[in-house]
């Protein structure tokens, strides 16, 4: 088995593959990340059948934590498979922090957390902020420390989807991008290496100062969100809230108690960025 390791924020992974190419690609895109010798999780990219290593190669994603009915992907999409494998380990196996399905960015030593459904634009916004005076902390998982309530970065590859791909290429001309993966169940996907300061500072956590529920494609509007609503929505947005029991409850209530919450609707990302900066200037 071909293999490599990588560390994103506090989590370390060992990745094995029946093929050489996906590992080479991972090593190339994750070049700036540490390569730990100890791993929290193992992810495997396996041929669905022995001969499918060579004939119409098909990647089955496996690992310490897996979904029983995950569909295999063609070898050209192996990088996506690997990313899905990494995400699954975190979503199903990580217990050291409260995991929120959210993006995050840091400014002035304080963290902005953004959560919302797929298509809300939280991922793109966090990436754009990362090139506009903020430090990108992560586009998929925000990790909240159970002991001190701080947000811990998880700056994995930024996953751009559909029209966000071209938009980002325009805004960040020298971005390092993975292969364009077309016609996945979520449309076209392309991964972008986070800004280098995000990777270098991935051990530096920050106190959450604002929680946002962004929503793309609606008339521009800002509204305050009641803590009760925010709490309920975050229980849904967390992958380990239930498993963590009382500890998870305490971490989440503390987060809600200490963090102002807003919902913003927006039509384009420029507007969203200025709305975020406007709200941020008032905290």
């Amino acid at each position: 088995m071909f293999e490599t390791t990588l560390k994103v924020g506090p989590a370390s992974f060992r990745i094995g593959s029946d093929w050489k190419e996906p590992i080479a690609l991972i090593d190339e895109l994750y070049a700036a990340y540490p390569k730990p010798s100890l791993s929290d999780f193992t992810v495997r990219m396996e041929a669905t059948k022995p001969w499918r290593r060579y004939i119409r190669p098909s990647v089955q994603i496996k690992g310490d934590y897996m979904l029983p009915d995950a569909l295999p992907l063609p070898l050209e999409q192996a990088f996506l498979a690997a990313e899905m494998g990494l995400n699954l380990q975190m979503a199903l196996g990580w217990r050291r922090h409260l995991i929120l399905h959210a993006s995050s960015a840091e400014k002035d030593g304080k963290a902005l957390i953004m959560t919302g459904e797929s298509g809300s634009g939280k991922s793109t916004l966090s990436a754009l902020l990362g090139y506009n005076g903020w430090r990108f902390m992560g586009d998929e998982f925000a990790l909240i420390d159970h002991d001190n309530g701080e947000a811990v970065p998880y700056p994995r590859m930024i996953s751009l989807k559909n029209q966000a791909i071209a938009a980002m290429e325009k805004q960040v001309p020298n971005a390092v991008l993975g292969p364009l993966i077309e016609a996945t169940p979520k449309g076209d996907i392309r991964h972008m290496v986070p800004p280098i300061d995000a990777i270098r500072n991935m051990e530096k956590s920050a106190r959450p100062a604002m929680l946002l529920f962004p929503r793309f494609g609606h008339d521009t509007e800002v509204r305050e969100v009641l803590p009760s609503e925010a709490f309920m929505r975050l229980t849904q947005a967390s992958t380990n809230y239930v498993t963590m029991g009382e500890v998870g409850f305490n971490t989440l209530t503390r987060f809600i108690d200490e963090t102002p919450v807003y919902a913003i609707d927006y039509q384009n990302s420029e507007d969203a960025i200025s709305m975020v900066n406007e709200l941020w200037s008032k905290i």
């Binding site: 196996g93 990580w94 217990r95 050291r96 239930v242 498993t243 963590m244 029991g245 500890v247």
Partner: peptide
């Protein structure tokens, strides 16, 4: 981590 899961 593993004991959190077991306790759950």
């Amino acid at each position: 981590d593993a004991l959190v899961d077991a306790e759950y």
